[in-house]
Amino acid sequence: MIRDFAVALAHYDAYLNGLWNTLWLSAATLVLASLAGAAVAALMLARNKAMRLAAAAFVDAMRCVPFLLFAYLVYYGLPALSLQLDSWACGLIALVIYHTAYMAEIVRGAWTNLSREQIEAGRAYGFAGFPLFRRIILPQLFFASVPVIGNQSIYILKDSAFLMIITVPELTFAASSVQSTYFVPFASFVIAMLLYWLVTLGIEAAVKRVELAAEVRRG
């Protein structure tokens, strides 16, 4: 067993490569899905009923679909729409669209839970429009949603592993390649598992720092 681990670790570059791709995909998804999610959240709160229903339908639908299935649909569906994209792009698109729905729900929740009194106070002191948004509303939204977004980013990280099935060279794919080439399955996947764990611990530590900062302000 020790020998197996030594063999696997000798190919650390494969794991690091896979880890890098996983991190890149996850970070890109987090950023893009947050922005798109905020937009969808705005639609969910729009005055136009058709827009509200469409946005709600999208969010509800995505939350009932397993991610791997959705990835398959994107992977096989885009060519049907005459879009020939490689598995990387398909994977990223699938991740972004899927998690946009979850982000929309998070943003909507944070928005409806905003403290009206603080915004009122902001307006009473002469804040309006963009400055109001940036200095009063946004910090509140941020502190309220960071723990949940932190949680969601762990889900994004884990969903990215499904993309190995459509041959995206992320971490689990790398572990699978190493194990099938050198016949060290246990060692290989344990290493991958530990790497996912370390990244998750990092995310949780970052969220804790922000929560502490929020505590200081909230008391």
Binding site: I154, D159, F162, M193, Y196
Partner: peptide, 23 residues
């Protein structure tokens, strides 16, 4: 709990099915 919650289902499945004969 900490490790399992951080592990993707697919990675866990591969570990258990392909890794268990090694132990």
């Amino acid at each position: 709990v900490s490790v399992v919650r951080a592990t993707p289902a697919i990675t866990l499945a591969l570990l258990i099915f392909f890794g268990s004969p090694s132990i």
